[in-house]
């Protein structure tokens, strides 16, 4: 599927939303919705998308839309999907959660829904911290990143732990479809979205969503950062069906992680040792996923 195959004027997530300039979340949501189509029910827990997508009396969604508590994404999409099935209607049920609502707060409901193999799509747009409430660290925040709860200074050099690999946790659930995606690879992005729509059962899509505000980066570089994250190995694109990786993208040329972290204020305080530590983690992940040394 090419970008030219996308419907031209069908916008189920319309302009006028109040996301920060250069936010990647509306790019993700808008393009996904073009493929999911009008027979879609959208759920969002507490996250940026909930706030910028619709604060009373304004709404950017052109499809039925509901929101509930932070931790409930898994159970709510399961409930909506079952209700429509009972009524005999065929719809796509999608939950858009952030990384906080997936990695930390929503993992229990998500794991339950995955284990029951509910017929719904769960999308995690991962901006690597609780951006909505003012950039607090989450399970997704990478090593060394400075956030408001892990401020880099004399006491600590940013976050001390590495990023949790959520897509791998979901893969271990052996659900019908798990995919990691990037906005910088639109063809791959659209094909995976289409495949998710056509698959039955529980589907988990994980997209890296650069956040100019929280990453303290230039808004114009959003897509560029997403591309560099894939090229350096911080973010790996793959598809997995029932726990088996069926398709994995390998960058033609692996760039050093330093090239990715440059230009991001959250990594500004990095010493050469810290870069080395992050590179070590990336190389380990690379070896685990590709089965060979970088």
């Amino acid at each position: 599927m090419n970008i030219k195959d996308l419907p031209e004027d069908e916008n189920y997530f319309t302009p006028g939303h109040t996301a920060c300039a250069g936010c990647a979340a509306p790019i993700i949501v808008r393009n996904m919705m073009k493929i999911f189509g009008k027979d879609t029910i959208v759920y969002t827990p507490a996250n940026c998308l909930l706030v910028f997508g619709g604060t009373y009396p304004y709404l950017s969604w052109k499809v039925p839309y509901l929101h509930e508590a932070f931790e409930n994404t898994g159970s709510c999409i399961a409930g909506v999907s079952r209700a429509y099935k009972k009524k005999g209607k065929k719809v796509t049920v999608v939950g858009f959660a952030g990384d906080g609502g997936t990695y930390d707060i929503g993992i229990q409901a998500l794991s339950g829904a995955a284990e029951r193999n509910e017929d719904a799509i769960y999308v995690c747009y991962d901006n690597e911290a609780y951006m909505n409430t003012g950039i607090q660290r989450s399970g997704s925040t990478p090593y060394g990143a400075s956030t408001t709860t892990t401020p880099a200074g004399k006491k600590i050099p940013g976050k001390l732990e590495h990023k949790k690999d959520m897509a791998e946790i979901m893969r271990a659930h052996q659900i019908p479809y798990v995919a990691t995606m990037s906005i910088a690879h639109p063809k791959d992005f659209l094909e995976k979205t289409k495949k998710a729509k056509e698959t039955e059962g529980f589907r988990y899509l994980h997209v890296l969503s650069p956040c100019p505000t929280g990453w303290r980066a230039d808004p114009a570089k959003t897509v560029e950062l997403a591309r560099k994250a894939v090229d350096c190995g911080m973010w790996t694109l793959y598809e997995a069906e029932y726990g088996e990786i069926t398709n994995i993208y390998k960058p033609k040329k692996k760039i050093p992680v330093e090239e990715y972290i440059r230009g991001q204020g959250r990594f500004r305080h990095f010493t050469p040792e810290m870069v080395e530590e992050l590179q070590r983690w990336v190389d380990e992940k690379w070896e685990r996923l590709y089965g060979e040394k970088p």
């Binding site: 970008i3 004027d9 916008n11 939303h17 936010c23 790019i27 808008r30 639109p186 897509v223």
Partner: peptide, 15 residues
């Protein structure tokens, strides 16, 4: 190439 159209976060570019 329509990359601008796909990447625009605000759907502010028309095809």
């Amino acid at each position: 190439c329509w990359f601008c159209w796909v990447y625009c976060p605000d759907a502010a570019i028309a095809r």
